[in-house]
Design a protein around this nucleic acid. Structure first.
Lengths: 172, 172
DNA sequence: CTTGATATGTCAACGACACTGACGTATCCC
DNA sequence: GGGATACGTCAGTGTCGTTGACATATCAAG
C-alpha cells in the first residue's frame, strides 16, 4: 500500500535510533536538573559535582587519576577544585609513597553535600528503576555500557557484569 | 559474617544507583564525542548540532517551539542560529497563517550535515543495540523514559510506547 | 482603527566551564 | 647531578548558557 519494501525497515530503524538519541538528550538534562538546582544555591556548578562525586567514590585519589576520569585539563580542574578546598569540602594530603602526589578526599561537609546531591538523583533513578522493572534495568545497563568507549568501559565494566547479584566483595 | 543485615541491601542498592549514574555520565560523553569532533572541524559546537537535529526533525518549526524544546533563551539560540543561516544550513520562511513567525527548515546542505552527524551516532547506537539485544533495548527505553520530566515525556512518550512495532502512521 | 499581546531579533554584560601555551616547584628515580 | 613526573598557576581564548533592556512586525480584539 505504501510500496516501501525494505526501505520501510530502514525507516523504522532510523526512528528507533532517533528516539534513543532524544531519550538520551532529554534524559541526561532532566537527570542533572536536581543537582544543578542545589549547586546553584551554593554558587557551584556541574563541574563541582563531578569532582565531589569521584573524590567521594575514590577517597585518596590523585589529581592525575581524577583528571583521567574527567578528561579535563589540570587548569580546568584547578578552577573548580580550589573553591572546593577553600570551602572545606575537599582536603588534600601528600602521598605517602610519592610525596609529589596530592591525594584528595572529602571532608565531612563534602560527604554531606555529595550525599545530598546523590539523594536527589537517587530518588529519580530509583523511581525510574521501579517503574521499569528489574529486567528493564538490566537492559538499560547493557545498552549504556555499549555506548562507552574502551576507557570508560574498563572503569565500570566489571561492575555492570555483576550488578544485581549479591556480591560481598569490594565493588569499587 | 559481615553483620550487615538490611544495611547490606541498601548498600547494594546504592551501588546500583551509582553505577547507573556513571553509565549516564560516561555514556553521554562518549555518545556525543563523534559529532563533537565533526562539528569542531566546521567551527561549530554541540549547540549547533541540537538545532540541526530538531529543525530536521520538525521542518517548519517556529522559533518559539524550538526554544521550548531546547529550553534556552532566544539570545542563546540566536548566537547559534545566525551562523547556521549564514552558512546556508538553515532557512527561514514567514508563517503563512501568522506572518510574525519564522519557520525554520534545513537546506540540502543542512540535511547533509545533519545526516553526517546522525550517521556517526547511529553507528555507535546500532552496535550497542545489536550487542545488547532487543529486550535490553526495550528496557533501556523504559528506564530512560522514567528519567524524563513531564514536558519531555509528553514529547517522546507516545513514540516509546510503540517503538519496535511496525506502525505505518506518522510518528512525529 | 487604535491598542495590547505576541513572535522575533538584537545589543550589552556576565558567568560557567572547557581549551592552549608557558612557566615554576617539588619530588622521584636513575 | 639530571631528566622525568606530579602538581600548581598565570594569561588568553572559545562555546554556550544567562539576565536585562529595547525595537519591530504582526495579530487579535475592542
Amino acid at each position: 500500500m505504501d510500496g516501501r519494501g525494505t526501505a520501510g525497515l530502514l525507516y523504522l530503524r532510523e526512528e528507533e535510533i532517533r528516539l534513543a538519541m532524544e531519550l538520551l538528550f532529554y534524559g541526561y538534562r532532566d537527570f542533572t536538573a536536581g543537582p544543578d538546582a542545589i549547586l546553584a544555591e551554593l554558587g557551584m556548578g556541574r563541574a563541582h559535582h563531578r569532582v565531589l562525586y569521584f573524590v567521594g567514590r575514590h577517597p585518596g585519589i590523585t589529581v592525575s587519576e581524577l583528571l583521567a576520569i574527567l578528561r579535563i585539563t589540570k587548569q580546568s580542574l584547578g578552577r573548580v577544585l580550589q573553591p572546593l578546598i577553600a570551602g572545606g569540602y575537599v582536603v588534600q594530603s601528600r602521598g605517602r609513597s610519592d610525596r609529589r602526589q596530592r591525594l584528595l578526599s572529602l571532608t565531612s561537609a563534602g560527604e554531606a553535600l555529595e550525599r545530598r546531591l546523590f539523594e536527589s538523583q537517587r530518588a529519580l533513578l530509583a523511581r525510574a528503576f521501579r517503574d521499569a522493572g528489574g529486567p528493564a534495568v538490566e537492559g538499560f545497563r547493557k545498552v549504556m555500557l555499549g555506548l562507552l568507549g574502551a576507557e570508560a568501559r574498563a572503569r565500570v565494566g566489571l561492575r555492570v557484569s555483576v550488578a544485581g547479584a549479591p556480591v560481598a566483595g569490594k565493588v569499587a
